[in-house]
Design a protein around this nucleic acid. Sequence first.
DNA 1: GGTCATCTGGACGGTGCGGTCAAGAACGCC
DNA 2: GGCGTTCTTGACCGCACCGTCCAGATGACC
Lengths: 188, 188
Amino acid sequence: MDVLTAARDQFWTTGFAGTSMDAIASATGLGKGSLYGAFGGKRELFHRVFDDHCSAAICSVSRQLGGDDEQAFERLAAYLLAHATACAEPSHRGCLLAKGTAELAGHDEVVAARSLEALEGIQRAIAADLEACQRNGDIDPAADAQQLAGLLLTVHRGLEALGKAGAEESTLRGIAETALAGLPRSSR
Amino acid sequence: MDVLTAARDQFWTTGFAGTSMDAIASATGLGKGSLYGAFGGKRELFHRVFDDHCSAAICSVSRQLGGDDEQAFERLAAYLLAHATACAEPSHRGCLLAKGTAELAGHDEVVAARSLEALEGIQRAIAADLEACQRNGDIDPAADAQQLAGLLLTVHRGLEALGKAGAEESTLRGIAETALAGLPRSSR
DNA sequence: GGTCATCTGGACGGTGCGGTCAAGAACGCC
DNA sequence: GGCGTTCTTGACCGCACCGTCCAGATGACC
């Protein structure tokens, strides 16, 4: 495991404030002096980890939702339902994007900006999928894909919050299905 | 300002880990020994504050959504739109329920349980409003009010998360309106 | 006013943390 | 092998924090 992955895992588990540099040194196998030498400080290391994680999240959703028009709705449904299931896992540490934002966005502008950027990236991927659904006739072509993408992103983030509080898988999947059912279907 | 309110405000602003007992002592005007004598410890104080806040949140949503059937939909729309606006406020510290859950639910079972309980209470109030909408003919009576309430609660929580990342008011209000527009209307 | 019981505040002890730095290790060159 | 340069480590420092505790303050009673 490389240094950044080990550090990310620590921050992911115990949060920024709850993770000591000693813990990161242990997890990475590096001395603290080397960590400071390489990254500058705890905050800078977190930014690096957070940035990489946001980039990976955008790539992941783009990969999951990208594809032909015919299966676009199936991919979208699978994405939301899988996310609902993941959020309900007891071992689920919650999303680093959500945790980092909740913990730090209020007083760390770098995290706030990166977080917003990541959410916008995820929304674009959802909107692209919705447009594919529209071209394929699964969603009403007159509907505003950007607005619907914003709603689905909000549901996605809300599922994260409810899962964090311990909601059950069936509850969360029901919510995802209700959201999908409420999308304007094409009248054909 | 009383002790619990002052303590809540500190925790609300700087989170659990980021709030020192010295800061709470200053804000409340009490000595630390008195705080420990009255509440037992930092964690116990936070539990008390969190519990009171969750109770108040449930009361608030019940008050906002409670009323006659005729205006039920208007009240629901006003509730979501006002929330969207509130989430976008730069001065908005985020919801203590969301912040506390994100920070602590993963390793504090009391907070996790109280958080889930609070969310369930909010969902009940939303469901009751939706049922009033159904009786009034604003929502399809064949729709599952509990499922729709779960979805709206998820949107509500998701708006919180997006607002925390700095999303704009018009974006969040657009999302709230899209969610309302997607509710199954009565065919009359 | 004096005495006793209770309460209060903040100094203090012990621990943890982020960051620094010098001793030692590792590496490259002659 | 010796020398010089660079890198690494983790002990250490200064500071922050939680919880404890006792000297002093307060209040009730006679």
